[in-house]
Design a protein around this nucleic acid. Structure first.
Lengths: 160, 160
DNA sequence: GATAAACGTTAGTGTGTCCAATGCTATTGT
DNA sequence: ACAATAGCATTGGACACACTAACGTTTATC
């Protein structure tokens, strides 16, 4: 029984997450922050429930992350006049800047992570991963996939 | 800026970890237990420090996991007569059985996870991931790579 | 109008990963 | 031989991500 318990996927993912976390930490940010800011910049304002669906972040975890972002002035919460249950979350201008900053950092880290792979191989990897995700009914339903799926660069975020 | 913040790698990995965790939980086990038992079965008894290097589990976390395994009778700790600093950890017969049980479960889950991919694609995926891991100086130094690396099936554990 | 659903929030759990400090034991350098 | 250094096992703490359960409020549905 010569298994190879290398936990390849998890190890690579853990490595990526460590890189991302470390890279973000110097700015006092973490993965959730980037996910949220990026979603707000890319797909516009949204209620928290909608944001949670878009980013795959649990509603209960969203509250805390948004509190942090709001305290830092990167995000604004305003009651939705049309539906008093909802908070509409909006990125502020500093929030956009921070999203850009974190995005650059994430891109650099991803570049470092994927360094050993050629462009074609990177596409292979993202293609395979995406198929796995799509097949296993991606837990995230509210998603802006089409635009990027048609992008040739295959520059999907692998980590973050 | 039409990013796709899909965090592909992490999402797939998270999905895999959830499947594994859920699958193991019904037996009252978790990932660490399997990693440890599997390493002991595959590569024989070892000191805790060595086990940690083999499995990539932190020494401080090893203690707790081994306590649990020992309480359940799956593993035995004995002082190394040759070096009184060391505990030699050995898998018991029930431990082997449990390793087999968890291994089957993990294999089934992995099969489910990789269902959408052909055999060739699975090899592609593991190949790409392994290259990433190898390049980024795998954090685990003490590893039984050769035997499995030469295996054609490419049936490395992706998760767990 | 009652029942059910959605929303935001709080609190708590589990898993994986990491760090710092402690006490003991081996090894090294002088 | 002895002191400094390094390795080992353990404890206690931390953090990020993910998930569950419960609650009060507001909107939809029957």
């Amino acid at each position: 029984m010569d298994h190879l318990p290398s936990r390849l996927l998890n190890q690579v993912s853990a490595h990526a997450q460590r890189l991302i976390a470390d890279g973000f930490a110097v700015s006092g940010a973490r993965g959730y922050h980037f996910r949220l800011l990026d979603s707000l910049v890319s797909d516009g304002p949204a209620s928290q429930a909608s944001l949670g669906r878009r980013t795959g972040i649990h509603l209960s975890d969203l509250v805390g992350a948004l509190n942090e972002l709001e305290s830092a002035g990167f995000v604004r919460r305003a009651p939705d006049p049309a539906d008093k249950r909802r908070n509409v979350v909006t990125v502020t201008e500093p929030g956009r800047e921070r999203a850009a900053e974190l995005g650059e950092r994430a891109a650099a880290i991803q570049e470092e992570l994927l360094a050993p792979l050629s462009a074609g191989e990177r596409e292979q990897l993202t293609g395979l991963l995406r198929r796995l995700l799509d097949h296993h009914g991606s837990p995230v339903t509210e998603r802006s996939r089409p635009a990027a799926a048609s992008r040739p660069g295959g520059d999907a975020w692998l980590a973050g």
